[in-house]
Every structure is written in C-alpha cells, then in structure tokens.
Amino acid sequence: MSEPAHDGDESVRIPDHDLDDLVSTVTRLVTESRKQAETLSRLTDTQPTEEDEEPAEATSDSAAAPTGDEAAGGQAAEDHGPSSIFILALDGKTYAEELAALTDWVHDLLLPVYGREIASGRPWCQQWQKHPEAVARLHALWLAWQQLTDVEAGLTGPSTWQRDHLDPAWMQLRTPDGPFGACTTSPARPNHRLLASPDPAGA
C-alpha cells in the first residue's frame, strides 16, 4: 500500500522561527495580562489592609468623620478606584494606560493570528482607537481572552473564547455596515472616517 501524498503539507506549515515568535508574544501578553488583572484587583478591592487601618486609628475624631459629600459617596467611591474594569468606565490616565495595553494585544496577537485580509466585505481601520464601538468591543474581547486563556479556565477555555467571544465580536466589527463601514476596504487605499450616530435627542 503506497504512502499518502504530502505535497500540500509544506504550504500550510508555519516556519519554526515564526512559531517561536508567536509563542513568545503570547507568553509575554499573558504575563502582562495577569499583572494588569492583579493591579485591577487591588484597585477594586474595598477591604482595608492593616496598613490602611493604622493611620485611621491615629487620626482624631474630627479628621476621621466623613464630610457631607463623602457621606453621600462622592469622595469615598473615588478612594476605592474605578467601579468597573470596562474601558468605557475609565477616564484620564487610567483610560490611556488601558488603551495602550489593549493596543499591544490587538497588534501583537489578535491581528497577526485572526486578522485576515482586508476586503470590501471585511473592512478594517488602522485608527480603530478613534472608533468608540471598536474600542468597547475589542476591550471586552480582550477581557474575555484574559479569563478564558488562563490555566484555571481549563482545556476548553480557548475554544470557548473563540466561539463565544471572538467570532461574534469579529463579525460585528468587520461587517460592511459595522463601525469600519466607511474605512479601509482595500489595503492599497487606507481610509478612516467616523460614521454618524443617531441623535439621542431625536432632533
């Protein structure tokens, strides 16, 4: 019995050096994601530490008493960090740092692996950071990736991420009537334009 032909194997084989680069990139991104998750966990942790409690005991009653605004939750809420890890709930420096980390993930992992070619039926925008919907969807996708590619997610975590998060998000972002509908449809003709949103006031 003759051996099966393997003529097509070479055309789909990923070169070892490219595979090593991809593995290195994924490892680095996973490490960065875990560090950010730990940072966010510390920011959103509302339980006071022993270090926090000691200065509080040393303060006078008048200094420890909350003001009217603090009692209403104004300043107190700020002291405990952001109330959400979703990027649209962040602002200022925190938003800029989160967007920079998201950009690294999109450019280093998402696009090289899942980007596919730009076409009229599959637009893309190099300035995707200026599209609020794209930022929101990609950030949600990244958060899910951090959770479902963690060891604790189990062996089916990556498959679940692709099926339940990547595919729907990619379909919404790169459909011709999605947020990039007026942007690049051919790699040779880069374009960026924000589409108008409905007027909330209905005017």
Rank of each mutant, 00 (worst) to 15 (best):
S84M: 05
V113N: 02
H131P: 11
H6P: 07
D61S: 02
W145P: 00
D9C: 12
A136C: 07
H107I: 04
L29R: 04
Q126T: 06
P123Y: 01
V12C: 15
E53W: 02
P66N: 15
A64N: 11
E57Y: 00
T175C: 04
G68M: 07
L195G: 15
A188C: 11
I87T: 02
F86D: 14
T25Q: 09
A140E: 14
G181Q: 13
S24E: 13
T25D: 07
R174F: 03
A65Q: 12
R137D: 03
L99C: 12
D104Y: 08
A144S: 15
A136P: 09
P123W: 01
H6L: 11
A201Q: 15
V30K: 09
L90C: 02
N191G: 07
Q146Y: 01
D9T: 11
D16G: 08
H6F: 10
Q129L: 14
E38N: 14
W105H: 03
T31M: 13
R122S: 11
L110M: 07
Q126H: 14
L22D: 01
W145N: 06
L173A: 00
A58Y: 02
S11T: 00
H17G: 04
G73L: 04
A72Y: 04
N191F: 04
D45F: 12
Q129E: 15
T185C: 00
W161C: 08
A72N: 06
Q146T: 12
L102M: 09
T49L: 06
W128P: 06
Q162T: 06
S186F: 00
D177L: 12
T46F: 09
D91W: 00
T94D: 05
P200H: 12
D18S: 05
D199T: 08
E50Q: 04
Q172S: 08
Q127W: 11
P55S: 02
T39V: 04
S197Y: 08
W170N: 07
W145L: 09
L143G: 10
A37I: 04
P4Y: 06
L173F: 00
D7Y: 07
L166K: 08
E10Q: 05
V135A: 14
L22W: 03
L109P: 00
V151M: 07
H17I: 06
T103R: 08
Q147A: 13
W142Q: 13
F86Q: 14
E57W: 01
S33C: 08
P123E: 02
A37C: 05
D45K: 15
M1F: 11
P132H: 15
G92E: 07
T149S: 15
G73S: 06
D164I: 03
R137F: 03
L90Y: 02
T39G: 00
S83C: 03
E98N: 05
T149C: 15
H80V: 06
L19D: 10
L88S: 10
E3Y: 15
R163C: 02
